[in-house]
Design a protein around this nucleic acid. Structure first.
Length: 216
DNA sequence: TACATGATGCCCT
DNA sequence: GGGCATCATGTAG
């Protein structure tokens, strides 16, 4: 990662989740561990709106589970799903207004071996280490990226993304995204028609490479 | 390669 | 007790 990379601020997340989801593409998710740094480029996100979005966890009001979505912007909302997996979100909009963005897929950048271990994958020979077909196994999905980063609700729910002291951060390393694709969100039944999934077109690291586009 | 299905546990009604 | 912002595996083609 380039030396000149800057931490995203609270103001970045204090916006409509659709704009945050779009702007997060190309940014770098970072986990600082005692053993080193894990980093992955964000290649796929989904926006969950506070108002009028039946698919959002905040749709039926504030509960113990979803309270982070109603708090200040730039904090981690982690939930447990389908008995096996965690999903990572960042809260958006001002304190008191619900909204968030789900991290759906990352391109592994740093700490590939550690992330593979977190996923329970055996590391192949060096000739495969940089192949997208293998790297895809690490974090091409919301449940997978949480395994790779060892993200759990107990450890990370409510954690700040915007504190310089946090072990969970998001940085801008100057990378420019060439082309963004937009489509319907994955795995939901309510409000499934809304085009709120954002991903980097042609990236081999997204969770579902091909899916009908709504707009370019 | 594409699709269907089962595993699994927590939160909310 | 139902439903769930998922994933790995098995079967068919």
């Amino acid at each position: 990662m380039p030396a000149a990379s800057t931490l995203l601020s609270s103001a970045f997340f204090n916006r409509d989740p659709r704009r945050v989801a779009r702007s997060l593409l190309g940014k770098v998710l970072i986990r600082r561990t005692p053993h080193g740094i894990l980093a992955g480029r964000i290649v796929e996100t989904e926006a969950y709106l506070g108002a009028g979005d039946a698919a959002a966890h905040s749709a039926s009001g504030k509960t113990a589970r979803n309270s982070v979505l109603f708090g200040p912007p730039g904090f981690a909302y982690v939930y447990f799903i389908y008995g096996n997996y965690y999903c990572l979100n960042v809260s958006c909009l001002p304190d008191g207004v619900p909204g968030g963005v789900l991290f759906r897929a990352l391109e592994p950048l740093m700490g590939v071996r550690e992330m593979a271990a977190g996923r329970g994958l055996s590391v192949p020979g060096p000739e495969y280490l940089k192949k997208a077909s293998w790297l895809r196994k690490i974090s091409a999905g919301p449940g997978l990226l949480c395994e790779a980063f060892s993200i759990t609700r107990a450890r990370d729910n409510g954690k700040s993304f915007v504190s310089s002291r946090s072990d969970l951060q998001i940085a801008d390393d100057g990378h420019r995204v060439r082309r963004v694709a937009i489509g319907p969100r994955i795995g939901i039944t309510k409000s499934a028609e809304q085009p709120l999934r954002y991903f980097i077109a042609n990236s081999p690291f997204v969770s579902v490479p091909l899916r009908p586009l709504v707009k370019a």
